[in-house]
Design a protein around this nucleic acid. Structure first.
Length: 405
RNA sequence: GGAGCGGUACCCAAGUGGCCAAAGGGGGCAGACUGUAAAUCUGUUGGCAGACGCCUUCGGUGGUUCGAAUCCACCCCGCUCCA
C-alpha cells in the first residue's frame, strides 16, 4: 500500500497541491519534506503531535523529514485563522522555547545518521536585509491575491497589522530556502497553513522554475467541530511537567464516544482493522476502546512505563482495585496537622481559594478518603493518613493523593 | 494628522450617578441521571467571613460628588471613515 494511501485511509490528509504528482513522488523517490513548528510556547501540544505522527509515518516510509523550528517566524506571529493579534514574544522567550521544543522533537523523530534534519529559520530570517528581501521575494507577491486568501479572512474583519501580513512571505521564503539547501520538495502542515504552503509552492516555481508540492493535515476537532486537546488549564501539553501523564491519559480516557474512532486513527499506530473493530463497540463496551486509546497515546508521548503507571492509577481510582502508588501525589509539611482542612488544601493548591472550597463542601463535592466532608471547620488529622497518605477527591473525577513529609 | 465609535469579570455582552460584586449567554465547577462518555435537568461561578458584614474589581491617572463602571480632564489601546 502506498504511504499516501495509508495516510489518506487514516484520515490525516485534508488538501493537496497536486495529488497525483505527490503520490507518484512519494512512491518513487526518497523525498525530503518539511513541517514547521513555531516556538510560541515552551512545549509542543497535541495539535503538533498529529503532525509528528505524519512525519513519523513518512520517515518510516523512507522519506527524509526536516523539522523546521520557527525561531524567526515566531518573531512575527502567524495570523492564519486567528481572530486577534497574538501577543508578541520576546526574543529571550523565543530562544528558550526553541530549546525546549528541540528536546521534545527527539522523542518522536529519529535524527540518527542524517535520517532527519532539524533547522531553525532564525538562521536565515533574522539577518535578512529588508530592501533586498522586498526586491527579491516581495515582487512575487500580489497583495490583491493575498487579500483573498482564506487565512486572512477573519483578520480583515478585525484588523491585521503589516507585521503579521508578512508572515506568509516569510514562510514561503522558508520553503524556498529549504528547497535550495536540502532539495526539499514538499511542505506539510496543519490545514490552517494551506495558504502559506501554496505561497511557498508558487515562490519556488517562480524563483527556481521547479515544481514543489504541499499538503495539509487535518486539525484535531471533535464531532462538534471544536478543537480537541484543550483542557480547563489550556492546551494538552506533551511536556509531563505541564500536563502530567496521568492527566494526559485521563483526557483520552474520557473522549466522547463519537470521537473515539478519529482519535484512534490519528493518534495511534494501531492497524486500521483494529481501529475499526474497537470503534464499532457500543455503549459501555466502548470504554474498552477508550482505555486502549488512552494507553496507546500516552505510550507514544510519555513512554510505556508512564503509560502503565497512568493506567494503573486510573484503574485504582475508578475501578476500585489495585494500589494507589501511581496516583499523582502532593507532599505537605506534617506540622500542618491540626490546621483547618480548607487552609491546608488551599496551601497544597488542591483548591484555588477557600471560597471555592466552601462551595465544594456546600454542594457535597469534597471527599477525604471517600468520605464526604460536611463541615467548613474540618481539621487535618493524623488519622486521615492511613497507610501514609490521604486521598482528596473533588467531584467525581479529580483526585489528589496527599502525603506528609 | 482629522472625524466618529469603542475598551466591563475566563470569553462574548448589558449597564450610563446610589437598588452594582455588576443582567444575559458561553465556558468552568458541583449535584441528579449514566458507562470515568455525550445529551439533558438543577445549583453555582471575585476574595475574606458559618449568616451580618468587610475588602478588591468595570483601559490608566487625576478630579467633581455624601456617593462613580456611570459625570469631567488628560493619557494609553483598538476599530471605522477621511488624509
Amino acid at each position: 500500500m502506498s504511504i499516501l494511501d495509508v495516510l489518506k485511509e487514516r484520515g490525516y490528509i485534508e488538501q493537496f497541491s497536486h495529488e497525483e504528482e505527490i503520490k507518484e513522488l512519494l512512491d518513487k523517490e526518497k523525498v525530503t519534506f518539511y513541517i514547521g513548528f513555531d516556538p510560541t510556547a515552551d512545549s509542543l501540544h497535541v495539535g503538533h503531535f498529529i503532525q509528528l505522527m505524519v512525519m513519523s509515518y513518512l520517515q518510516k516510509a523512507g522519506h527524509r523529514p526536516i523539522v523546521l523550528i520557527g525561531g524567526g517566524t515566531a518573531m512575527v506571529g502567524d495570523p492564519s485563522g486567528k481572530t486577534d493579534m497574538r501577543k508578541m514574544l520576546s526574543k529571550e522567550d523565543i530562544t528558550y522555547n526553541v530549546e525546549c521544543i528541540k528536546k521534545q522533537m527527539e522523542k518522536f523523530i529519529d535524527f540518527s545518521e542524517g535520517k532527519a534534519i532539524l533547522v531553525n529559520n532564525a538562521e536565515w530570517l533574522l539577518n535578512l536585509n529588508y530592501i533586498d528581501f522586498l526586491r527579491d521575494i516581495g515582487v512575487h507577491f500580489s497583495v490583491n491575491r493575498m487579500l483573498t486568501a482564506e487565512c486572512f479572512k477573519l483578520r480583515l474583519e478585525k484588523g491585521l497589522s503589516f507585521l503579521e501580513f508578512n508572515y506568509m512571505l516569510m514562510q514561503a521564503y522558508d520553503f524556498l530556502e529549504l528547497n535550495r539547501r536540502y532539495g526539499c520538495k514538499l511542505e506539510v502542515g496543519g490545514n490552517d497553513q494551506w495558504s502559506n504552503i501554496l505561497a511557498g509552492v508558487d515562490l519556488i516555481r517562480r524563483k527556481e522554475g521547479k515544481e514543489a508540492y504541499g499538503m495539509t493535515i487535518t486539525l484535531l476537532t471533535n464531532s462538534e467541530g471544536k478543537k480537541m486537546g484543550k483542557t480547563e488549564k489550556g492546551a494538552l501539553w506533551l511536556d509531563p511537567n505541564k500536563t502530567s501523564p496521568y492527566e494526559f491519559y485521563q483526557y483520552w480516557r474520557n473522549v466522547n464516544d463519537a470521537d473515539v474512532e478519529k482519535c484512534l486513527r490519528l493518534l495511534t499506530f494501531l492497524p486500521m482493522e483494529e481501529v475499526r473493530k474497537l470503534s464499532s463497540l457500543k455503549d459501555k463496551e466502548i470504554n474498552e476502546a477508550k482505555k486502549i486509546l488512552a494507553f496507546e497515546v500516552t505510550k507514544l508521548v510519555h513512554g510505556e512505563e508512564e503509560a502503565k503507571k497512568a493506567q494503573e492509577a486510573a484503574e485504582a481510582l475508578f475501578g476500585g482495585s489495585g494500589d494507589l502508588s501511581n496516583v499523582p501525589t502532593i507532599k505537605i509539611s506534617s506540622n500542618l496537622i491540626g490546621q483547618k482542612l480548607l487552609d491546608v488544601l488551599v496551601e497544597a493548591k488542591v483548591i484555588p481559594s477557600k471560597s471555592e472550597g466552601k462551595r465544594l463542601i456546600q454542594q457535597g463535592g469534597l471527599y477525604i478518603n471517600n468520605e464526604k466532608v460536611s463541615s467548613f471547620d474540618e481539621v487535618l488529622k493524623e488519622e486521615m493518613f492511613k497507610e501514609g497518605f490521604m486521598l482528596v477527591r473533588k467531584g467525581k473525577k479529580s483526585y489528589n493523593k496527599i502525603e506528609l513529609e
